[in-house]
Write a protein that binds this DNA or RNA. Structure first.
Lengths: 230, 230
DNA sequence: ATTTTTATTATGTAGTACATATCTACTAAT
DNA sequence: ATTAGTAGATATGTACTACATAATAAAAAT
């Protein structure tokens, strides 16, 4: 038996702490009891007693749920918060420096995939005002050709605007969070290859072209990145 | 001034607790000092002393980082963990029951977008073996036409396989996590409209068609959902 | 030199204490 | 009678102590 397989054969036992268990229990409890946003929860002490653990442990677990925005605690009563910011927790962990190469690559591809798939929703939701703004961004960029410092900035502004035009806030935030990843991976690509289809051309397609033409344009625009994918 | 605007006009002040601040500080500290995975961290007490707070507070903050997989603590030394499971934290919060309609819709659209954008990577990575397996799934489905109980199951199997074929684990997990959302929103759509392009046809396109043909097929397959988007 | 024992150290958990914010109920005021 | 103000109760936020246990480092024994 080769030793290299060890970590696959033996799955690591992770000693669960009380806080881990309580966190699970609480999450389950909240789901099972189907609390509505704003419903008061039992006090920390009550939970501790019911679970047979100390308040410290309950607090550690609650602290996690609080961070995730699942519960909100006020001085006098614990409340269940309706809208945990689903991307907030994601954001906390998204640091290119501590992520492994594979995941970075995966996220990079995820963004490329989104960008290509965006055409449909974009055509459903695009408004003249936004297209004009996008054009303004693209034009502004043309004026600064040759100044690499601004290139990335404009790239971000342009693509960011496109996401904003979808009216999909979650997607927009998601894209925004992936920016560092994008930047990081692009740095790895080293050589800068100017896109064969420019931002101006994309805007033109958005104004007078079709959904499919735009998608093809975007594909060309991102062609270089796709070619890096084996 | 209408009263309904109050919550918009006044943005709520959220009293940050020590644990919140310490969490921020620690995350900053880890980034700034650019710890490498496995590097030992100061002890809880040392951190507490340095930050001028009690160990309880530090523990609450550490508990959060531990949950996110940013740090790992052993009995004798605290270690920084390399690979925080970026989707793990996301998963914790992804409960259709506590998410607001808008976000649900956003995520639904996100998945549609991915599905349409997938064609390119799929064509780069697809292997005969996988295409055969996908075909097997599609065929198996045909045999059970008319049994609505199995419909969703097959739908999941088929699309899941497609994501798997991209070789992008992150995307695959992401899709898997979004399944409940998808199911939930589809339930809201109420009426079931059979897709105009079947799974079998998609497989056929994957075998003998082109990237673009496949994308168009997928668009048709999802057409009904896109039509729900205003 | 290798193994065993001992000491040390940090985490995990329990528990106490207390300041403060907020809720409830009661009281006073217009 | 409704509003404003006051007092008491309660739960959270924070600090601190204590201790079992696990993991390491150091010392002792073979």
């Amino acid at each position: 038996m080769p030793l290299s397989n060890l970590s696959v054969e033996l799955k690591r036992i992770d000693q669960k702490t009380m806080a881990d268990l309580v966190e699970l229990q609480l999450r389950d409890y909240l789901r099972k009891k189907s609390f509505k946003p704003g419903d008061p929860l039992p006090s920390e002490q009550q939970l501790a007693d019911a679970l047979g653990v100390s308040r410290s442990v309950v607090r550690e677990a609650l602290s996690r749920l609080r961070m995730l925005g699942i519960v909100e605690t006020r001085k006098k009563r614990g409340m269940l918060l309706s809208r945990p910011d689903i991307l907030g927790s994601f954001e906390r962990v998204l640091d290119p420096l501590i992520m492994d190469k594979k995941t970075l690559q995966d996220l990079f591809e995820l963004r490329l995939t989104l960008e290509v798939g965006l055409a449909d929703i974009l055509y459903i939701r695009k408004k003249k005002k936004d297209v004009d703004e996008l054009e303004a961004i693209a034009v502004r960029q043309q004026l600064t050709v040759g100044k690499p410092t601004f290139r990335i900035k404009h790239e971000i502004a342009f693509h960011g605007k496109i996401y904003q035009m979808t009216g999909n806030e979650t997607m927009q935030r998601f894209q925004h969070m992936l920016l560092p990843i994008f930047g990081y991976v692009m740095e790895l690509e080293k050589v800068y290859t100017p896109a064969s289809v420019s931002h101006i051309q994309l805007v033109e397609l958005l104004k007078n072209g079709t959904k499919e033409k735009f998608r093809q344009g975007m594909l060309q625009h991102l062609k270089h990145h796709f070619e890096q994918i084996k």
